[in-house]
Computed example of a mutant assay.
Amino acid sequence: MTSVSRRRAGRPPGESRTRERILGAARSLFAEQGFDRTSLRGVAAAAGVDVALVSHYFGSKQRLFAEAAALPVDPAEVVPRVLAGPREEIGRRLIEQVLDILDAPESRQRVVALIRAAASEEGAAQVVRERLAREMLEPVAAALGSSDAPLRAALTNAQIVGLVMSRHILGVEATVAAGREQLAAALAPALQHFLTGPLDRR
């Protein structure tokens, strides 16, 4: 096959750029406004395209959201990094991974959009439950030999979601003003406890 026919067989470059522009606009709006207040028409306006083009590429708002706000990391890659090191420092390694994600604008938009939408959109809630808790945090807790892996993962997940809510959605002044090192130092012991510490069974 010639290079010319290969180019014709694939997606035209302009089409790919348009699709990415729509996704970028969608990520921003879902993160800023949430799922319910974001419309395909609003995404189209922000991307500078006709709303019919948004429907052409993504079909529905649910499908657009699923792609725009997909978890920005692969749990299969994160879990080994969190587990690679001393057991007593796993809380620190986990919060560092979380802060790495939240420090990058595009991945932060995805996470914020997911957390903001999870309260009203079941698809978003399912991603948070399955991808973050079950596929990333439960394997970490299980690898540490815990018989309470689902509970430990749920408690750890609550801390992470709470950080995103407080700092990036509610804009609580103290958490917004806190630097990365301060946040890591404050949250690492809590994550460490939920992953490895004793849980009161009373």
Rank of each mutant, 00 (worst) to 15 (best):
L94Q: 05
R81K: 12
D74S: 06
A70F: 00
A69W: 08
E106A: 13
R92D: 13
L94T: 14
L102F: 08
V128H: 13
L114E: 10
I95P: 01
Q97V: 15
Q126Y: 12
A68F: 05
S146D: 02
Q97A: 15
A70V: 04
E121V: 06
G145A: 02
Q126I: 08
L144Q: 04
F65V: 04
A113I: 07
L99T: 10
A125S: 14
K61T: 06
R131M: 10
E106W: 00
A104C: 05
A84F: 00
R129V: 11
R63P: 04
A66E: 14
A143T: 12
E89H: 11
P86K: 06
R134I: 14
K61G: 10
V82Q: 01
V98W: 02
Q109F: 04
V127Y: 07
F65I: 03
R108S: 05
V111E: 07
L71T: 06
E122R: 14
R134S: 12
P80Y: 08
I95V: 15
A143F: 03
R87M: 02
R110F: 05
A113C: 11
A125W: 10
E88K: 02
S146H: 02
R134A: 14
I115P: 07
V111G: 03
E67T: 01
V79D: 05
R134Q: 14
A76L: 09
A149E: 05
R87D: 12
V128L: 15
I95T: 12
L94N: 04
F65R: 04
E77A: 11
R116M: 10
A125R: 14
P139F: 01
L144I: 03
L132P: 13
L71C: 09
A66T: 02
V111I: 15
A142C: 04
E135C: 03
R93T: 09
A117S: 15
V128W: 14
